[in-house]
C-alpha cells in the first residue's frame, strides 16, 4: 500500500516473465536514468565532496577535510537551529498526528456528511505550505492580529506572538498542527481496511466499545500510524517556507524560528558558504536517515502486521 511497506518488505514488482525486455526497459527508463545521474546521484556525490571543501561559488573549491563538520558544533547559530528544529518537529508532529487520528476515529464508518467534513479538514493541508498562508499567519499572530482581536473580546490583552522569542516558534508549530488533514485522510483509509467482521465477532463475545477500540482498531492501525509518523517527521524536518516568511527571512526574533533548512539557506545562498551548507545538508540527511532507521527498528516492537 505504501512506499514504506514496499521498502520494508521488499516486494517484487510484477509477475515473472521468461523473456527479458532489457532494450525496452532502457528506452522507457531513459529519462529517469538521465535524471538520476544528472539531477540526483551526481549532485549528491558532488555535494558530499563540497562538504569537505571551502567553496564560495566564485573560486575553485579548496579541500579542508572535516573542518566544516567540526565548525558546525562550535557554531552557536547552528546549535540553535538544531534545537529549534528538534523542538518544532517533536512537539508539532505528535500533536498533528493525534489530531489526525482523533478526527479520523470520529469520522469513521459511513456517517452522514463524511465527504464534506473530510474536505473541510483536508483543505488546510493543501494550502499550508504556501507563502500566502505564511503571510496570513504572520498577520493573525501579530500584535494587532486576529488572535489578539479575539482575545480582546474576552478582555485579554495579547501580545505580538510572532515578535516574541518565546512564542514565535509556537505559531509555526500551530501551523503544522493545522495541516493534520493529510495524515487524517490516510488514517481514514486505514480504518476502512479493518474488516467489519472483527468488530461483529468481538461484539458477540460481549466486548465493550472501548475494548474493541483497544484490541482491534489500535493494533490493526499501527502500520498506518507508523507510516504517518515516518512521513510527517521527514517532512517536518524540512519545513522552510513558513519560517522564512513569518520571520522575514532571518529566523528571528533572536533566532527563535531559525529552522534547520532556513539556516542552511542563509549560509549557502546568503553568505555563499557553500561548503558549510553542503556539510549541513549531509548532516540533515544523516539525521533523517538515522531517525528513519531507528523508527524501523523500534517498529518491530509496536507495529502489528496482520498477514
Amino acid at each position: 500500500m505504501s512506499v514504506i511497506q514496499e521498502l520494508s518488505r521488499g516486494k517484487q514488482a510484477g509477475a515473472v516473465r521468461k523473456k527479458g525486455d532489457g532494450r525496452w526497459a532502457l528506452l522507457f527508463l531513459a529519462p529517469w536514468f538521465v535524471g538520476l545521474a544528472l539531477i540526483t546521484a551526481g549532485p549528491m556525490g558532488a555535494s558530499l565532496y563540497l562538504s569537505f571543501t571551502d567553496y564560495d561559488l566564485l573560486s575553485a573549491p579548496e579541500w579542508v577535510g572535516l573542518e566544516n563538520y567540526t565548525r558546525m558544533f562550535d557554531d552557536p547559530r547552528f546549535l540553535q537551529s538544531l534545537g529549534v528544529t528538534f523542538t518544532y518537529v517533536f512537539v508539532s508532529v505528535p500533536l498533528q498526528l493525534a489530531a489526525a487520528l482523533g478526527l479520523a476515529l470520529l469520522l469513521d464508518k459511513g456517517m452522514r456528511g463524511l465527504a464534506l467534513y473530510r474536505s473541510v479538514y483536508y483543505l488546510p493541508s493543501l494550502l499550508g505550505g504556501s507563502v500566502a498562508i505564511a503571510i496570513l499567519w504572520r498577520q493573525i499572530f501579530g500584535a494587532d492580529g486576529l488572535v489578539n482581536q479575539v482575545l480582546a473580546l474576552f478582555g485579554i490583552q495579547g501580545q505580538g506572538w510572532v515578535s516574541h522569542p518565546d512564542y514565535a516558534l509556537g505559531t509555526l508549530m500551530a501551523l503544522n498542527v493545522w495541516t493534520f488533514g493529510a495524515p487524517m485522510v490516510i488514517f481514514l483509509a486505514g480504518l476502512r481496511q479493518i474488516p467489519q467482521m472483527y468488530y461483529e465477532a468481538a461484539a458477540i463475545d460481549g466486548a465493550s466499545r472501548w475494548r474493541q477500540f483497544r484490541s482491534i482498531t489500535v493494533p490493526l492501525l499501527t502500520p498506518i500510524i507508523f507510516f504517518n509518523l515516518v512521513l510527517q517527521l521527514i517532512e517536518a524536518f524540512q519545513s522552510f517556507t513558513r519560517a522564512f516568511v513569518v520571520s522575514g527571512g532571518n529566523g528571528g526574533p533572536s533566532d527563535s524560528t531559525l529552522l534547520y533548512t532556513l539556516y542552511l539557506y542563509l549560509k549557502g545562498f546568503g553568505s555563499l558558504d557553500m561548503g558549510y551548507a553542503s556539510a549541513m545538508a549531509w548532516f540533515l540527511l544523516l539525521i533523517i536517515g538515522g531517525m528513519t532507521v531507528v523508527n524501523f527498528l523500534a517498529s518491530k516492537y509496536w507495529v502489528f502486521y496482520d498477514d
Binding site: 512506499v3 540526483t40 555535494s47 549557502g268 553542503s278 545538508a281 540533515l284 540527511l285
Partner: peptide, 12 residues
C-alpha cells in the same frame, strides 16, 4: 530517491 531532501542536491 522519494525520501531524499532537496537540500542534499541543491548546491551542485
Amino acid at each position: 530517491s522519494i525520501m531524499l531532501p532537496i537540500h542534499v542536491v541543491i548546491v551542485p
